[in-house]
């Protein structure tokens, strides 16, 4: 058995196991930490797919950014004691049936389809080619993504500051 195979199974089982812990955990902070391990597992799968730059970006953006945001959201929106980070689960049976059905259908389609597989040469690094593509064919989507991020930042700050001024006003009225 090759090392790549062992690594693939290790990381995919870690990813899926952490995702399952995230879904079925009752405590929302435990869910957030399980999501972190799942995202790190996905980054390792990207490394196995020769996508080193995407893997680094995944670690920086998801684990370093989005997960911290989610943890802040958990802390800012929980009433009462800190050990009370519970989440309510409803519709367990219909949701399980639907997601198992979707998983079975997707796996059936993926296994049965005759994919046109072509052997790609192993690249040493992808950063140079990705940079050339970003400044060449993809320059318009790149700029639009930059503008989108700017708008998202301004919108998020606007909503958050309106939030604080509103609560100050309410306190003054009370």
């Amino acid at each position: 058995m090759e090392l790549t195979t062992i690594l693939f199974y290790f990381f995919s089982i870690a990813t899926i196991g952490a995702a399952a812990v995230m879904v079925f955990s009752k405590n929302i902070v435990h869910s957030a930490f399980a999501l972190m391990f799942s995202l790190i597992g996905v980054a390792s799968l990207y490394v196995l797919l020769y996508a080193d730059f995407i893997a680094a970006t995944q670690l920086l953006v998801y684990v370093g950014g989005i997960l911290i945001l989610i943890l802040f959201g958990v802390m800012l929106t929980t009433q009462g004691r800190s050990f009370d980070y519970k989440t309510i689960t409803v519709n367990l049976v219909p949701a399980s049936i639907l997601s198992l059905g979707v998983a079975a259908l997707l796996i059936f389609v993926f296994v049965k389809t005759d994919w046109m597989i072509s052997e790609v040469a192993e690249p040493d690094q992808t950063i140079y080619d990705l940079g050339m593509l970003l400044m060449g064919d993809y320059v318009l989507p790149f700029i639009i993504a930059g503008v989108l991020l700017l708008i998202a930042i301004i919108g998020a700050i606007l909503m958050a500051t309106r939030l604080s001024s509103q609560s100050i006003k309410n306190e003054n009225i009370e």
Binding site: V23, N91, L92
Partner: peptide, 15 residues
């Protein structure tokens, strides 16, 4: 596919 179905499960069953 398995990750997708787990995410779907979280969306449908959590409140």
């Amino acid at each position: 596919a398995i990750l997708f179905s787990l995410g779907l499960m979280a969306i449908l069953s959590k409140r």
